[in-house]
């Protein structure tokens, strides 16, 4: 037994002494949990960074599958961008623990929380599973808010500079450029706000899950009717009956849902209430038309407008990604 333990310790020592050490690299290796953050990192980092997203835009973020390349990618990251607000709490901590990359451990400079400074909606007043799958820090789907761009961009900028100070001028310049485009888009998106504010018909919305709360709040739509009775809790027949009754009373024309929701139930409710099912992406690249963050917000707002039957904006064309 002693011989065996000695051999074991020698093997460990050998492995420790010959552990992987990262060779010098030209570019900062940025890993983002979701495509939205990857897009912001590409916009601000430019040629100084290589960016990888762990999740695909179509995936259900509540339970991301662990793939070999996910672990490999995290193990080589210089910077890990996460949304925070416990959006990734069911899978990211275990992945980081497995990947054994100290640079991106919680509290390290390489770990960047992109929701820092954001005021979340739906912050629970008490933490109990009686409320379903509640997020302790509030609704984490804030990247779907048209107002979220500056917060995310600022946090990404801070993270990149912290981990690559030599690139500060480049990052700052690209951030300034992005900020101008965000400002311009914000003015455009404000017209949707005005449109919904003027329309007396459209004050309420129905969703399956609460991922569109920020987007709908931006438009002044109340999202008090959800097909899920509580976050993460599938609807019972009794609850569906209440939803159908409430929708008929309010004449709400649209149900917003994501691809991974239980959309057979959504379709059933829509059929019984003459509503339209509007399946929207929850992240960049979640649909063909949502190739970048501007397109995601643009496209979502436009589809909601159409769903509510409101008149088309008569301003200049929708802003897309500009060359830089």
């Amino acid at each position: 037994m002693k011989t065996l333990l000695t051999c074991l310790l020698l093997l460990i020592s050998f492995t420790s002494a010959h552990g992987a050490t990262r060779v010098g690299k030209d570019k900062l290796n940025v890993v983002a949990t979701v495509p939205d953050l990857a897009w912001f990192a590409e916009q601000i980092g430019g040629d100084r960074v290589t960016v990888t997203s762990l999740a695909k835009g179509t995936e259900n973020l509540h339970s991301l599958s662990v793939r070999p390349r996910t672990i490999v990618t995290i193990s080589k990251a210089d910077v890990l961008l996460e949304m925070g607000l416990s959006l990734e709490s069911t899978w990211l901590p275990e992945l980081v623990l497995t990947a054994r990359n100290r640079k991106i451990n919680p509290g390290e400079p390489g770990r960047v929380i992109c929701s820092s400074g954001w005021s979340a909606l739906d912050v629970p007043t008490s933490l109990s599973r009686e409320g379903g799958d509640v997020h302790p820090d509030g609704n984490p789907h804030f990247a779907l808010s048209p107002l979220a761009g500056p917060t995310i961009a600022r946090n990404v900028l801070t993270g990149l500079i912290l981990n690559d100070p030599k690139g500060e001028l480049v990052y700052q310049k690209r951030f300034d450029d992005l900020s101008r485009r965000l400002d311009k888009s914000a003015r455009h998106w404000a017209r949707y706000q005005a449109l919904f504010a003027e329309a007396t018909c459209c004050k309420k919305a129905v969703v399956y899950h609460m991922e569109f709360d920020y987007l709908l709040a931006f438009l002044g739509l109340e999202t008090e009717i959800a097909i899920e009775p509580k976050p993460g809790v599938p609807p019972t027949p009794n609850h569906l009956a209440k939803v159908i009754s409430a929708m008929r009373g309010e004449s709400i024309p649209v149900i917003l849902t994501a691809a991974w929701s239980k959309n057979k139930q959504v379709t059933m409710v829509a059929t019984k209430t003459d509503a339209q099912v509007l399946e929207l992406p929850t992240m960049v690249s979640g649909a063909d038309w949502a190739s970048d963050w501007f397109a995601l917000i643009d496209g979502s707002l436009e589809r909601i407008r159409i769903g509510y039957g409101l008149p088309e904006l008569v301003e200049e064309p929708v802003l897309g990604e500009e060359p830089h």
């Binding site: 460990i12 492995t15 420790s16 002494a17 010959h18 552990g19 992987a20 050490t21 193990s75 623990l97 054994r100």
Partner: peptide
Amino acid sequence: YVGFEGNTTL
């Protein structure tokens, strides 16, 4: 124990 360099765990 995960204090080793590399990906070793004891």
